[in-house]
Design a protein around this nucleic acid. Structure first.
Lengths: 214, 214
DNA sequence: CGACAGATTGAGAACCGTCAACTAATGTGG
DNA sequence: CCACATTAGTTGACGGTTCTCAATCTGTCG
């Protein structure tokens, strides 16, 4: 993919890469740092659609559409690879393999979004929280950012609240109730009892994820 | 795409095309009829992830993965085009254009799932219902199934409840409160006052959708 | 007619949101 | 160095939305 690269981008925690409604001519992959894809509602509501971790593809959807339907914000300082949207057709012509892998990426993304929809629709606050923390921890350890069940997670409670569709207050109280099984302090997420968490989240503890690299 | 077709499939309303966990070797496009993609939870919960209308692509994600992460059920009798998963690599090699359009389809799908997540996370029952009915009506009229604001919609209240993450009872009561603006009787959905509905749903009435055909 | 699926309605309880107050940590300016 | 402001997290009280349970009603089909 190197020959299609349009360079690197750095953004600081709190900054946004692009906004909803923007015309976006690039897409990205995350190399370092964490962020989130966010949708804003007319009434001021804010939904965090997914977290962005190293290795993730960012903004493919935004680049293909006329305008972005979601914003991307950095939770920590991030380093990104930048690609020209205009190079996509050429890429598709030159390498069927890579084109295939883009579809693969999109399919995996779709899988995760579906699981999120099931969670927001069917699980209560406790289950949502346990589910999210499990998933986050699994993703982070899959990219090698986790040691001893402790992973960097530079978000605020407000972010998690907006991801789970809960109020900030209730998010806080739910976290408190899960404290026997999880700690989250100063940007570090520590899973103390993964089995108990999986249980609460109604997740199969030994289900291996399917998220291959590009 | 004709040369990759593996034939047509018919299924009856209520039947399921494939189940979660199945190994799926085909993907499909819907020609006639309506259905839904569904995720089942360990506790018996059921989340309807998206509705399937004529023209929609079905099971691309399931075909690419080792096993399907969602089921597909028909709400009415359906006619589907069937494609061999195994033909995908050949398709990618032979036609960059078509490969590109698959990514496009996936991106559009991702867009819709993101909007659904925002709805489940941020909107209350009334807003969800209005949102769903608006969207459904828009999709159906975009494929020419709608006349005079009336469209065929062969689902049950239970399906809509599971799509919106609401209980059946509350779904019913919410529908009752929206009755001045929408009717849904005997499988026909009629939007009486689209502007009022959009208002309730916090949707921009004149936002043109972006869902081109293959 | 009885059986059944789907829709409808009411009553009570549980969950979650809002409001408000308070703590702790950090930074800034005088 | 201290006063003050700001941000993030925490906790309690109260009220509203939504869920569950249960009963009733309707139309269809045998």
């Amino acid at each position: 993919m190197m020959e299609f690269r349009a360079g690197e981008v750095r953004i600081n925690g709190g900054e946004t890469l692009f906004h909803e409604g923007d015309k976006v001519d690039f897409f990205y992959t995350a190399k370092v740092g964490q962020g989130a894809r966010v949708i804003h509602l007319p009434n001021g509501g804010r939904q965090l659609v997914n977290f962005i971790f190293p290795g993730d593809t960012i903004g493919l959807q935004a680049a293909l559409a006329k305008e972005a339907s979601s914003s991307v914000v950095a939770a920590s300082d991030m380093l990104l690879c930048k690609f020209h949207k205009g190079n996509l057709p050429k890429l598709f012509r030159q390498s069927a393999r890579r084109a295939y892998s883009l579809v693969w990426i999109a399919a995996v993304e779709e899988h995760f979004l579906g699981e999120t929809i099931a969670t927001l629709g069917q699980r209560d606050a406790m289950q949502r929280m346990a589910w999210a923390l499990c998933r986050i921890s699994m993703r982070l350890s899959a990219v090698g950012l986790s040691s001893d069940g402790a992973s960097p997670f530079p978000f605020k409670q407000r972010d998690l609240a907006d991801a789970l569709g809960l109020s900030l207050v209730h998010t806080n109280k739910t976290l408190a109730r899960l404290r026997p099984f999880v700690r989250w302090e100063k940007g570090v997420l520590t899973i103390l009892d993964p089995r108990a968490l999986s249980e609460i989240a109604m997740l199969d503890y030994d289900a291996q994820p399917e998220r291959p690299l590009l």
